[in-house]
């Protein structure tokens, strides 16, 4: 598996460049032309990132996650979700760096091969920082009205995370 992961990028790059060369594409000029567009996009995304990270960092530092976790403990226990997992369920869609930090801390505390360790690993591996992705993607495309994107993305995210919580009890 490691080999496949390591070879994939060089292979793709080689195929692209050689095919383009054979077809008579001015390879480097075309690359630079595309790269310029990329640089412009990256600059367009910077203000979006500053805004999102500012709001996320306030929320993380405020202790709000702890308040919310405590409130949700009771209802979550009714549907079989361990209280230790709740902070991750709240944090994951909103902050990539904070959820990664929490994951690293929790997996050391609970053990990687326990139910909690495996459930948290599965949540981390199968979900995305939805808010950040939406903001960056739609920000780059200059979309103001994202319609049902947030609702559907959060449904996808929570379906996956809850699936992780239950599957790890069985498997």
């Amino acid at each position: 598996m490691d080999f496949i992961a390591n070879i994939s990028i060089p292979a793709i790059v080689l195929i692209i460049v050689i095919t383009a060369w054979i077809k008579g594409v001015p390879v480097f000029d075309t690359f630079v032309e595309g790269a310029k567009e990329g640089a412009k996009t990256a600059f367009d995304v910077l203000p979006v990132m500053v805004g999102i990270l500012a709001a996320v960092s306030i929320l993380n530092a405020s202790g709000f996650i702890d308040i919310l976790s405590n409130l949700l403990k009771g209802p979550a226990a009714l549907v079989g979700i361990s209280p230790e997992i709740i902070p991750m369920l709240i944090l994951r869609p909103f902050s990539g760096s904070a959820s990664l930090g929490l994951f690293t801390e929790q997996i050391r505390a609970y053990g990687a091969d326990t139910y909690l360790g495996r459930a948290l690993s599965t949540i981390m591996g199968s979900s995305e920082t939805v808010l950040y992705t939406l903001a960056v993607y739609f920000g780059a495309a200059d979309v103001k009205n994202t319609r049902h994107a947030l609702a559907a993305s959060l449904i996808a995210s929570y379906a996956g995370m809850l699936a992780a919580v239950y599957i790890c009890k069985v498997l």
């Binding site: 460049v17 095919t19 077809k23 075309t30 690359f31 595309g34 790269a35 990329g38 640089a39 996009t41």
Partner: peptide, 13 residues
């Protein structure tokens, strides 16, 4: 820059 450039080359090819 890197991937936008590569994508442009792949597209033209």
């Amino acid at each position: 820059c890197l991937w936008s450039g590569m994508m442009k080359v792949a597209q033209k090819a």
